[in-house]
């Protein structure tokens, strides 16, 4: 498949596709981060995670519409506002879901799987009723549309770089919260041993609720980024949940560095292969490679070494 291209062409193609994959990387990373936080914290596999992302996407769309209609002068900055709103909207919904549904099912992991799957269907129908079945897209502000011309053959899309920088900042913030803040210490204690965490005085229920909300909020931000590479419809989230699971498993659950590395690898592999092959073929090859690697390294790319 590489036969028809010269070496310098190939280099340019890889670079271009690599940068084109930046937004996909951002979406994967944020989604996986949210999913991993929730799974690591309470052992809940959130099947509705994609719908939390789509809520963020809809919020971004609404914000962009609002700015277009009422504050056209500030349209260039709508994305920042949208991200913050997306975070809080998805986070608030997450908190509500944890309180109303998840916390009653902590001792029944299989039931949480079913319950969150049911929730994803309910949310999809809600989106359909509220926003309509048609997919919606946002207009990007002018300054995000162009690209940096690096060489004749290589262009870097501005919005890709922008979203990636924001994603890295968010990832750093999450890392800070989990590894260096007092709150994060409580979260990690609960993850390690819920019963013992309670017995040293940590309010595990509160930790659960806020952690679930954090994971969902980060998914909402992923939704904001998502509006730049796809149009938003009631079921758009479904397409991403499987990829996100892959990222988490491949990276090795409970390892932030692993999640980053794996989101990067998978998004880049997909984006690069898509140039040469059809989208579904690219997926198949990525999947096969991951399965192969996981057979050799079942614990994922990164795993903590410590005596249990």
């Amino acid at each position: 498949m590489f036969g028809d291209y010269s070496l310098s062409d190939l280099g340019a193609i890889f670079a271009m596709q690599g940068f084109a994959g930046l937004i996909l990387f951002s979406v994967f990373l944020l989604m996986a981060l949210g999913l991993a936080i929730i799974f690591g914290q309470m052992g809940v596999i959130n099947m509705a995670h994609g719908e939390f992302m789509i809520l963020g996407a809809y919020v971004t769309w609404l914000t962009s519409n609002f700015f277009q209609a009422h504050l056209p002068a500030l349209f260039g900055g709508y994305f920042f506002v949208a991200m913050v709103l997306a975070f809080f909207a998805s986070g608030a919904l997450g908190m509500l879901v944890e309180w109303g549904l998840i916390r009653h099912l902590y001792k029944r992991p299989l039931d949480t799987l079913l319950a969150t799957w049911g929730l994803s269907l309910i949310l999809q129908q809600c989106y359909r009723s509220i926003f309509g079945a048609r997919e919606v897209g946002v207009d990007l502000p002018q300054w995000m549309l162009g690209s940096f011309q690096v060489t004749d053959a290589i262009q870097i899309p501005i919005n890709g770089v922008f979203v990636m920088v924001l994603t890295i900042l968010i990832t750093c913030a999450v890392a800070y919260i989990l590894y260096w803040s007092r709150w994060g210490r409580q979260v990690r204690a609960v993850v390690q041993n819920r019963v013992m965490a309670g017995a040293v005085g940590i309010n595990t229920e509160k930790v659960d609720r806020y952690t679930f909300a954090l994971g969902c909020g980060v998914a909402g931000v992923a939704g904001s980024a998502f509006t730049m590479i796809g149009s938003t419809g009631p079921t758009s989230g479904q397409l991403y949940i499987v990829d996100t699971f892959l990222v988490v498993v491949f990276g090795g659950a409970a390892s932030l560095l692993g999640t980053i590395a794996s989101a990067f690898t998978i998004s880049q592999a997909q984006s690069t292969l898509e140039f040469f092959l059809s989208g579904s073929m690219a997926k198949v090859i990525t999947l096969l490679a991951i399965v192969g690697i996981l057979m050799l390294r079942p614990q994922g790319l990164f795993a903590l070494k410590v005596r249990k």
């Binding site: 041993n193 013992m196 005085g201 940590i202 903590l304």
Partner: peptide
């Protein structure tokens, strides 16, 4: 715990991936 009970369980149950300092700090909450 807030009412003044503290517990050292059989088998210690320390948080193994957290540092010694962090382990003690969990009690500060």
């Amino acid at each position: 715990v807030a009412h003044g009970l503290a517990y050292v369980p059989q088998g210690r149950m320390i948080f193994s991936t957290m540092t010694v300092e962090e382990n003690i700090e969990t009690g500060l909450v």
